[in-house]
Simulated assay, not measured.
Amino acid sequence: MTGGRPAGTIDGMEAVAGEYEFAPLRIPPGTSRSAAATMLSLQADTGGWELARLQLHADGTRKVILRRRARLSYLPKPHI
C-alpha cells in the first residue's frame, strides 16, 4: 500500500450523479456460468453496457447491475 490509500480502491471512479444509467437484471438459477457470461458480453457489445455489480445467491440466482454512460441512452435496453 502506497500513498495512504487502502488496497483495492480504484482511482478515477468518481461519477457525478446522473452521469450513468443503470439496468438491474436477474439471471435465473440453473444458468451456467458460461451462458451468463455470454449474455452479459452480448449486452456489452450491443448496448454499451458494463458490469457494475454481480451478486450470486445461495439458490443460484444472479442479480446483475449493468451501467453505461447516460449519453449512450439511444442504444437499446438490455433484454435477457
Score class of each variant (00 low, 15 high):
S32A: 11
A35W: 02
A52R: 11
Q55F: 09
Q43A: 14
Q43I: 00
L51I: 02
Q43W: 04
L25W: 06
T31F: 06
S34I: 09
G47C: 08
G48F: 04
P29C: 06
R26W: 02
A35I: 00
S41N: 15
G30R: 03
A37R: 07
A52D: 14
R53K: 14
G47F: 08
P28F: 03
S41M: 01
M39V: 12
M39S: 08
D45C: 02
I27K: 03
S34Q: 13
Q43N: 11
A35H: 13
P24Q: 04
G30L: 07
A44R: 15
G47D: 11
L42D: 15
G48D: 07
R26Q: 06
I27G: 02
S34T: 12
L54F: 04
L54V: 13
A35T: 12
G47W: 11
L25K: 04
R53G: 01
S41F: 00
E50L: 08
P29W: 04
L40M: 13
A35S: 14
W49F: 02
W49K: 05
G30V: 03
A44P: 07
P29T: 06
A52N: 13
G47N: 12
T46P: 00
A37M: 11
A23N: 01
R33V: 12
T38Y: 06
A37C: 06
L42E: 15
A35K: 15
Q43S: 11
Q55L: 14
E50Y: 07
A52M: 03
E50M: 08
A36W: 08
P29N: 09
E50G: 12
G30D: 12
A36G: 03
T31K: 05
D45W: 00
I27C: 03
W49L: 06
P29F: 02
S32E: 13
G30E: 07
P29A: 13
W49R: 01
L51P: 11
E50D: 11
A52T: 00
P24S: 04
